[in-house]
Design a protein around this nucleic acid. Structure first.
Lengths: 211, 211
DNA sequence: CCTCTTGTTGATCACACGATCAACAATGCT
DNA sequence: AGCATTGTTGATCGTGTGATCAACAAGAGG
């Protein structure tokens, strides 16, 4: 009769169990947000007593923080990987803007926004947020500097411009989180704005879809 | 000896008490975020029993929602008021961008960001958020349309561009919430980006400070 | 087959939340 | 002065949170 309420969880190695817990936390966060990361929620997802989750984590703030870092870092690396396949800076920046606005990562965006406010009460999370933002900024900065070198762009302060573009992307994504309607061709408008910022030829960032 | 623990609160008219409560909620939210709006917190600030706050509000979701709306609407009207004192569209758009990035409203930004995530679990708040975003978008759209009429700008879809600028401003502000350092002249960079979007002459949005 | 290590349980604590409501008391009215 | 209205209290309920820890049992080593 009863399917879920198993009597006792099978005994596993600490490494394996720890991995289960962090993975469950990752899925939970993506589905219901970082706020859903409670001892009992995570435990239920693993199929284990709540005490066990506490046993594998110093405290919940740490689990929230590391889960955030895991999710966001994965996205950064994934997108950075896509970038390297593009020939020039213009194509890369265009792809970057286009990819980040394609609404296929709204779950990650939601976690970003949540982390911004949760960071006010979770110092460990706040540190992770700053760290991951730096990583993203570095990705943008690299592309901008490449464009400067090739002459495609003309930017005096690549770091600052990278921060700006990142901020814009974040804002537009957060907006999409609440108001998905209203604007259709966000990528085009943002591309024009970014072209203005990096001193690129208008239209040069228009993505040529690989499909 | 005891200062705060007064025996009983003075009896006031419903209107006056209700105003006290909403005002206390406003201050609390600005200081500690919308999450701090609990029955007991608000009650303590007013100097009243927690039950009284509940008596004046249908539920806490409603208080959170209305407090958000109050704070944000005030900011919108304040900035919109400043706008009307500027002569042309370029000056107005420049002032808009400059004012919203001057870091003097980070408390309001924090509330925006918090509302975006809280809205996922508070339908009333979500509605308020959409409403207030629309209001802001309308402000931007008005300026863009003016610029179109005077020929200062050249935009085909003023509504879409207004959404974009709004999103960018929100993103940069949210970023400043976590990373206040790194970028110094955000206004300049954003101005260049916006100039690109609205088709304005480069440099035309540079604010000429009234001071 | 037994023992001992150790992964696991679940009851429990203290706290905070929203919400409710009978009892209370201050005020205004007669 | 006495009464009725009504603003106000504070204890209470049910739920949820993080954290703790004695007790349990599964599995490995002897």
């Amino acid at each position: 009769m009863s399917s879920t309420p198993q009597k006792r969880a099978v005994r596993k190695s600490p490494a394996e169990r720890a991995a289960e817990i962090t993975e469950a936390a990752r899925e939970l966060a993506l589905e219901a947000g970082l706020t859903a990361l409670t001892l009992r929620n995570v435990a239920a997802r693993v199929g284990v007593a709540s005490g066990l989750v506490a046993h594998y984590q110093p405290n919940m703030d740490a689990l929230v923080s590391s889960t955030f870092a895991t999710i966001v870092a994965a996205e950064t690396q994934e997108v950075a990987g896509l970038l390297s396949q593009r020939p020039g800076p213009s194509e890369r920046l265009g792809l970057l803007v286009d990819t980040l606005l394609d609404n296929s990562r709204l779950d990650v965006t939601a976690i970003w926004v949540e982390a911004w406010t949760l960071g006010r009460r979770n110092e460990m999370l706040a540190a992770s947020v700053r760290e991951q933002m730096d990583a993203w900024q570095k990705v943008f900065q690299g592309v901008v500097e490449d464009g400067n070198a090739t002459g495609d762009f003309n930017v005096s302060d690549a770091a600052a411009v990278a921060w700006q573009i990142l901020g814009m992307v974040d804002g537009l994504n957060a907006q999409a989180l609440v108001r998905w309607d209203g604007v259709n061709d966000r990528g085009t408008h943002l591309a024009r704005a970014v072209e203005g910022m990096v001193g690129a030829v208008p239209g040069s960032l228009m993505a040529t879809p690989s499909a």
